[in-house]
Each structure stands twice: as C-alpha cells, then as structure tokens.
Design a protein around this nucleic acid. Structure first.
Lengths: 228, 228
DNA sequence: ACCCTGATACTCGACTTCGAGTAATCGAGT
DNA sequence: ACTCGATTACTCGAAGTCGAGTATCAGGGT
C-alpha cells in the first residue's frame, strides 16, 4: 500500500477529520470558511476520489450514512489511528523537507529565449503591474483579519505567500531593468539570434557557426572539444 | 478544441520543435542537456502523451518515421504555423500573468496548527538546514556555469529559483524565531489547544467555549453574533 | 568471445485530476 | 402562494499523469 502523498487535499481531509468526524461536503465547507482553499487546491471531483482512496488505505473509515428527505445520502467519515499517524508524518515532511516545486514563471523564464528580448521585457512589465495589485490585495486582506482580532497563526500561509510574491516582484523588476539596459549577460547574443531568425535563417544554420553569427558570447555554446 | 495549457512540458516541446524537427526522445535529450528538466517536469509517459495531444490539436505534425535495425521506430515531428503561434501566445501568458501556485510549504503552513508549536519550530529548523544546503548547491552550479563562460540568459531560471529560496529561508527563519519567543500572535492559544487535546479533550468540547478554554485570543473564533 | 553497463527509444495500464452536470432543499423577496 | 437564486451534496466520464517495464544496440573491459 504505497501511499503516494501527492495531493495535499488528502492531508487537509485528514486534518479536518482529526478534529471530528465529517462528511465530505462538510470538509469542503470547513476548508472554505477557514480560507484554506487559497493554499490547497480544492475541487469536488478530487475531494471525493481522495476520500475514497484514504478509506481504501485504511486512514479513514466510513462511520455511517444518513439521508434527509430525498437528498443525496451523506457518508460521515472518521479518522483512524493509522490516519492520525499519517497526518502527523506527512505534515512533518511538508514542513521539514523542501520539495522541488515547478512554478510557471520558472518554466516561462527557462524558455524565454524563444521570444525576443524586448518582447520579454514588455511582458514582464505587465507582470509587475499584476504582482503589485495582488500584493496590495493580500495586504488589505491581512489588515482586515488583524482588525477582526484574528491571531497571526491562522494566516501564516498568506504571510508566506506575501514574502514569496515580494521576492518575485523584486527579481522581475531587476531582470527587466537588466534586459532593457543590456547588463544581462548574453543580451547581444539573444537579440542577434532573433534578428537572424527574422531574416529567415534556421536555427541549425546559426548553430553551425555560433561564434561567427552571434559573436564571442556564443563560444560556450560550442561542443567542448572545439572551444579554443 | 479547448487546449488546456496545463502541462508546461507541452510548451517545452513546442519550443524545441520551433528550432528544428525532432523525435520525442531527442526532445527529451535536448531538454536534459540544457538543464530545462530542472524547471519543467519531464517524464517519458507524459512526454509521449503530450506529443500525441499536440499532434491531435494540429500544433505539430508527424513528418516521417524511421527505423534503424530492430530498434523501436522514431517518429520525427515538426511544428506547424498554428503551433508556432500557440508557443508565442502561451509563453507570453506565462511571463505576463502570475498564476495561482500551490506550493507544498504553503499547504503545510496552512495546516501546521494540527501539530504543537514546538514540534513545528523543530521541523522548520530542519528545513532551514536543507534550504541552506540547496542554496549552496545552486550557487556552486552558478559559479561553474560562469567559469565556463555560459551567458546569464541561459540560467535566469536558476537565479529566479535562488531568489525564491532565499525569500523562503528568510521567512522561515523569522517564523521560527517568533514561534520560539512567543511573539507570533496566537502562540498561547495554539500551545494551550494542544495541551488540552493531550489531556483528552475533544476539539468540539474546546470549541464549545473557546475563550474559556483558550483565553482571550480565541474570541475571534466565535461566531460573529456572540463576540462581545 | 563474452558480459555488463549505459544509452536509445518507446509502451502500457493503473491511478488521479478535473469540472461540468444533476438534483433536491431552503429562504428571501414579490 | 410562488419563484428564483443560493446552498447542500454528490456523480460521472474524459483527459492527463506517472513510472516501471521492454527491447535493442554500442562500447569497454576481462
């Protein structure tokens, strides 16, 4: 029974059931009102299959099913001892061990060479605006929480998000500036490459003699045995 | 044909094919040697189904299939005009529009209340060590790239990762300190809650009279109409 | 001559994810 | 009394993800 520990929604289910037995819809409502769906992707399809899978693994058990009138029946689940142990172990792992995260901006940056530099700078400037707006919204939400006397522990996630978004904003601002003023190493090569392609040269033709076409910056692109 | 734009691997495939026609395995090898698999999750199963799906959408086309000896046949794909357009459009979106990212630490923090504060602090201290190691490795990799004369544009992704990891490190360090010295708002409530549960009280019993059990900090947990 | 490791190249099917769809009930207004 | 939107509660199937498995070949060592 190799529990795959992929979907954090399963962890959230365990966490809810460790408070008290609930039926799936009540779990989803609980997560909603506590604002956890900001941090943990929640959709019905996944919820019900995740619950079923936890039950199959013996981490939770169906307690009883009730039905009011002609509504769909509700199955109330409770956490098992194994489930409680899994909750603690999984949560410990999440907190203690950095996982390889694949963010969409990282993917975008790693392929950004496919667009010309000025275009990339323009797009990132758009992003900067959006980031500022999102940060503003997060701050406002934080203020409201504080006014209501909500203790900080209940909002650490969003403070963490704020820290990450701020770092992203700073990085992107710096990157745009360096693309614009040509300080970014390889800028010339990058610009030249797109000029040549716009003139109809193929990638292969350019890479047959990168130094000749793109300049000295491209020397590192040659295979090792012919770099001198 | 609602292209779902979920898996960035599909974008990477388009980016590769926009350089020249390749067969899937060559695409994977290209991404590997360029270090893109650090930023874009790559596994064979996904690669082949993603390629098939791109072909079905008309964004790439099978050019021809070859076979050497008794080896499995290789199908070479080329990008179409629609594919080139999709590449540019998708990449633009990735760069310009922040997407809701669900990181595992955010999930962990949002459920951290399920563990007692001292335990969480201990776990986060473990994470700090791991983060320092990872940052060190990233820096070393960057130095090696620089020594080899690799222009910065080819490593922006990893600089971005470095910026994010640094922000995470700083945030976690600060958080641990505040848990340890009790400066984090709600610390008492959090500690008290776990003491009571260790004594055998249920979550329901505690929440029936939060202020009585947990102190003034818990007033915001009451329903709105009985907060005074 | 033979074996063994590592690279080449893809296949398969079990499992997950997703979100639209269904269907009943409640309550606030007209 | 009625209607309309929100809420409650879950179902379904199409699509996507994953990684172990399969099979071939090249090259180096013994």
């Amino acid at each position: 029974m190799a529990r795959r520990r992929s979907n954090p929604l399963a962890l959230a289910v365990l966490a809810c059931l460790s408070e008290k037995p609930m039926h799936p819809y009540e779990i989803s409502a609980t997560l909603r009102t506590r604002g956890k769906e900001q941090s943990i992707k929640l959709n019905y399809g996944s919820l019900y299959s995740v619950v079923e899978s936890l039950a199959k693994q013996g981490l939770i058990t169906a307690q009883h099913t009730t039905r009011e009138g002609r509504r769909p029946e509700r199955t109330v689940y409770a956490i098992t001892e194994a489930g409680q142990a899994e909750l603690e172990d999984w949560l410990s792992e999440l907190l203690s061990t950095p996982a390889r995260e694949y963010t969409s901006l990282e993917a975008g940056l790693s392929l950004a060479g496919a667009l010309p530099p000025d275009e990339v700078a323009r797009l990132l400037e758009t992003r900067i605006v959006a980031l500022r707006i999102e940060l503003g919204a997060l701050e406002r939400a934080g203020e409201i929480g504080a006014e209501m006397g909500l203790p900080e522990i209940f909002t650490v996630e969003s403070h963490y998000r704020h820290a990450l978004l701020t770092a992203e904003l700073e990085y992107v601002q710096d990157l745009v500036a360096r693309i614009r003023n040509g300080t970014l190493g390889g800028s010339k090569l990058w610009r030249r490459l797109h000029e040549l392609r716009a003139q109809g040269l193929t990638f292969d033709e350019i890479m047959a003699d990168p130094v000749g076409h793109l300049g000295e910056e491209a020397r590192a692109l040659l295979p090792h045995d012919r770099q001198n």
